[in-house]
Every structure is written in structure tokens, then in C-alpha cells.
């Protein structure tokens, strides 16, 4: 039942890989997120080296976001101009992130950077989501209408130069914010193996004021392209993409996602967000524990020279 992973150079039970892929696919279908933030830590917990986990997760995200992107495309819910600008930033960010990962690797700080980055990212995003979903559920319990998101008046965003018209989003705004957003997500994608949907979607809604119906499709297209670029750049720059691992995760993932999507149609949005925030916080807590608890051995050994 074991399969040898040629890049990770280890044997893993392949049903475990299918199960991990299916679990993450299920949650991503259920909750409408890419699931990279779950997959990378799960792979690290399974003993896959952090750099292989990060790089291979990117290819899993390409596959799992592909199906969603296609169906949004059919609905014409994609702002290609916006996506192109975000991707320009995304490519730059991915290149920088892959280079940064290489520096971290030679300094022996990959595990710390990946785990620490996740703790900060998941901790803050999870706390925000938990806060929001609990407030919504509480308000619903009292029979009140859910609190509307506050109207943000980011005058500095509207004051930025290089304005352009986005017909699909019915916006006339500066190209700098989407470029910077793409840049940040590109770095995160290379460094942490996340697609960044859980950052891009709120940022597009609250900061860029993109209409909700266009947000998901545009974000998915951006994730497909950025994670594809990340996969290639990791393969070229760090030789850490394991195609056998990717194949098993993807097969499990696309199957799991279908069940997740079906279940999500029967659940309320607030409950889904509550579950997602709890899952996110649990992963963050587990990773933080790994950083804090005294290791069994105070020395860490890696093969090869820095």
C-alpha cells in the first residue's frame, strides 16, 4: 500500500494521500476555499519535508480551482482585466517568494518561516472570521437582521494614480491596489503554498469594491494561474515539486470536492463560516504548538550542505 515519492525520497501509504487530498477537497468544496492552508500543514504533519509540501500543494490548488474557474467563466463572472493586473503582481510576487524560500532553505529556517507564517496568517484570518460568524449567528438568534459590513471610505485608494476602467466590475479605479494585492498573494503562494482566496476575496470586496458576483470567478482564475506559475517556478528554482504526490492529492481532492459542494448546498452560510474559522484556528494552534513545545532533540539534521 506504500508508494515511493521520487522527490520527497520517501515511502508513504497512498490511501493516506488520497484521504488527505479528499479531506481537503471536501472542505474546499464545502467552504468555497482552495484549501492550501489546510493541505500544506497536513502534509508537514505527515512527515513530508516543508519545501516539498509547499511546492506540491500549489499544483493541487491549480486542479481544485480549475473546475470552479471553468464554471464561473461559463457564467461570464470573470473580470479579465482585473485578473490580468493582479496576475502581473502575482508573477512578480511568486518569483520573489520562490527566491525567498531558497534563501530560507540555505539558512535552515524553512520550517520556522512556513510554520510561523501560517500561525500569523491563519491566526488572524481565523479570528476575524470567527468574530464575524459568531456575531451574525448571535444576531440571527435575537431575530435581528445581520449586521451589514461597514462602508469603508478608503479615500487614499481613490486618490491613487494610474486609473483604469474595469467594465466587467463597473469600476473606475487605480491599477495599483489590485497589483499590490496580486503581489502579496504571489509571495504567500510561493512561501506558504496557499492560493490566497481567503485573502483575495475579502480584499476585493471591501477594498477594491468589486461586485460580489465577479469576485469569486476573478479570484479563481487568478489562483489557477498563480499556482500554475508557482508550480513551474518551484520545479525550476528548488526542485521540490513531487509529481507522484501531486497526482494522488489531486485525484483525492477532485473527488472530495464534489461531495463538499453537494453538502454545502444544504448548509447555511453562517454555519459554514463558523466551521471554517474553527478549522483555521485549530490548524494555527497546532502549528504554534510545534514551534513552542521543546523538541525531542535540540539538534536538527539535514542532508546536504547549505
Amino acid at each position: 500500500m506504500d508508494i515511493y515519492l521520487p522527490i520527497a525520497e520517501m515511502s508513504v501509504a497512498w490511501p493516506l494521500l488520497l484521504a488527505v487530498g479528499a479531506l481537503v477537497g471536501f472542505l474546499s468544496g464545502l467552504l468555497g476555499v482552495g484549501g492550501g492552508f489546510l493541505l500544506t500543514p497536513l502534509l508537514i504533519f505527515s512527515g513530508i519535508p516543508a519545501e516539498v509540501a509547499v511546492a506540491t500543494t500549489a499544483s493541487h490548488l491549480t486542479a481544485s480551482s480549475m473546475a470552479g474557474a471553468i464554471s464561473q467563466w461559463r457564467r461570464r463572472a470573470v473580470d479579465f482585466k482585473m485578473a490580468a493586473i493582479m496576475l502581473a503582481g502575482g508573477f512578480l510576487g511568486t518569483g520573489g517568494g520562490v527566491y525567498l524560500l531558497r534563501l530560507l532553505r540555505s539558512a535552515g529556517q524553512t520550517d520556522l518561516a512556513v510554520s510561523g507564517g501560517y500561525v500569523v496568517l491563519l491566526g488572524s484570518v481565523g479570528a476575524l472570521m470567527l468574530n464575524e460568524s459568531v456575531r451574525t449567528l448571535y444576531a440571527a438568534q435575537l431575530g435581528l437582521s445581520p449586521p451589514r459590513p461597514r462602508k469603508h471610505h478608503h479615500s487614499w485608494i481613490h486618490g491613487l494614480p494610474l486609473k483604469a476602467r474595469f467594465h466587467q466590475s463597473k469600476l473606475y479605479t487605480s491599477v495599483i491596489p489590485p497589483f499590490v494585492l496580486g503581489l502579496i498573494v504571489g509571495i504567500l503562494s510561493a512561501l506558504l503554498g496557499v492560493g490566497g482566496g481567503f485573502i483575495v476575496v475579502p480584499a476585493m470586496i471591501y477594498f477594491l469594491r468589486v461586485p460580489t458576483n465577479v469576485v469569486i470567478g476573478t479570484s479563481l482564475l487568478q489562483i489557477v494561474v498563480v499556482t500554475a506559475a508557482t508550480t513551474v517556478l518551484q520545479a525550476v528554482g528548488n526542485y521540490t515539486v513531487d509529481i507522484v504526490l501531486a497526482a494522488f492529492l489531486i485525484i483525492g481532492g477532485v473527488i472530495g470536492a464534489q461531495f463538499g459542494v453537494r453538502l454545502s448546498a444544504r448548509m447555511r452560510g453562517e454555519h459554514l463560516r463558523l466551521i471554517l474559522s474553527l478549522v483555521v484556528l485549530a490548524v494555527a494552534a497546532r502549528l504554534l504548538w510545534g514551534l513552542i513545545v521543546t523538541p525531542d532533540d535540540l539538534f536538527s539534521v539535514t542532508v546536504g550542505t547549505p
Binding site: S59, H60, T62, A63, S64, S65, M66, A67, I70, S71, V224, A228, T231, V232, L233, Q234, A235, V236, Y239, V241, I243, A246, A247, I250, I251, V254, I255, A257, Q258
Partner: peptide, 20 residues
Amino acid sequence: PFAYGIATVVLGVFLGWLSS
């Protein structure tokens, strides 16, 4: 590595498309 990376992406895109 470049062709290998592209192959991995093609695998992902194909499986994603197939599932859809």
C-alpha cells in the same frame, strides 16, 4: 525542471477540467 513543472501543471489542469 521546466518541462517537469509544466507537466505537473498540465496534469493538474487536466484532472481539474475532467472533474468539472
